[in-house]
């Protein structure tokens, strides 16, 4: 293998991995900051009900 290609591949992996990590953390923080309290009863009732879709 051409060492330049290997460098490109690892560089790409590192860059995209870092971007993914940053965005993932960002989204997680945003989800925490903008958390909306959901009534747990809604899900419980919906689970009991018969659902075709």
């Amino acid at each position: 293998m051409d060492p330049a290609l290997i460098k490109l591949a690892f560089g790409g992996l590192a860059v995209l991995g870092c971007i993914g990590l940053v965005f993932g953390i960002g989204l997680a923080l945003a989800a925490q900051k903008f958390a909306v309290e959901v009534n747990p009863k809604v899900e419980a009732v919906q689970e009991v009900l018969a659902g075709a879709q």
């Binding site: 989204l27 945003a30 989800a31 903008f34 958390a35 909306v36």
Partner: peptide
């Protein structure tokens, strides 16, 4: 996903 999260609140 960002629009979804932010808009919900």
């Amino acid at each position: 996903q960002a629009v979804d999260t932010v808009l919900r609140k």
